[in-house]
Simulated assay, not measured.
Amino acid sequence: MEFFGANSMTLQELQDRVLQLSLSERWRLVESLLNSIRKEMQVPSLLESEQSYFMNLDPWTQSLVGVVQLNIEDEIDIYTNYLEEKYR
């Protein structure tokens, strides 16, 4: 796979070059890529209060925010069904 035409680097070449970056540079790249992916997937942005909370998390942990989407109504139904079965 090639990017941006015939004179551009392949995916493997890009990966090799990225791995030569420092750890902090790679984290900035990861954050940039995640932000780009979130925009494309139209993941809603966090409220300001949530943002300040998550900024104190490790960057790796921050990257996991929003990976799992819970539907609270489904969770309530599942728990209600569990309790009904338990106390029948």
Score class of each variant (00 low, 15 high):
residue 32 S to I: 09
residue 32 S to Q: 13
residue 32 S to T: 07
residue 33 L to D: 02
residue 33 L to A: 06
residue 33 L to P: 12
residue 34 L to K: 06
residue 34 L to H: 04
residue 34 L to W: 13
residue 35 N to Y: 13
residue 37 I to R: 03
residue 37 I to F: 00
residue 38 R to Q: 13
residue 38 R to D: 12
residue 38 R to M: 07
residue 39 K to G: 11
residue 40 E to R: 04
residue 40 E to C: 01
residue 40 E to T: 14
residue 40 E to I: 06
residue 40 E to P: 00
residue 41 M to W: 01
residue 42 Q to Y: 02
residue 42 Q to V: 09
residue 43 V to L: 14
residue 45 S to M: 15
residue 47 L to A: 12
residue 47 L to N: 05
residue 47 L to F: 10
residue 47 L to I: 15
residue 50 E to A: 08
residue 51 Q to I: 01
residue 51 Q to D: 03
residue 52 S to Q: 02
residue 52 S to A: 10
residue 52 S to N: 11
residue 53 Y to K: 00
residue 53 Y to W: 07
residue 53 Y to E: 00
residue 54 F to G: 06
residue 54 F to N: 03
residue 54 F to D: 02
residue 55 M to Q: 13
residue 55 M to L: 01
residue 55 M to H: 15
residue 55 M to A: 03
residue 56 N to A: 10
residue 56 N to C: 13
residue 56 N to V: 04
residue 56 N to L: 01
residue 57 L to C: 13
residue 58 D to Y: 02
residue 58 D to H: 05
residue 59 P to L: 07
residue 60 W to C: 07
residue 60 W to D: 12
residue 60 W to N: 06
residue 61 T to F: 12
residue 61 T to N: 15
residue 61 T to K: 02
residue 62 Q to F: 01
residue 62 Q to I: 06
residue 62 Q to L: 11
residue 63 S to A: 03
residue 64 L to Q: 01
residue 64 L to M: 08
residue 67 V to W: 02
residue 69 Q to C: 15
residue 70 L to M: 15
residue 71 N to Q: 13
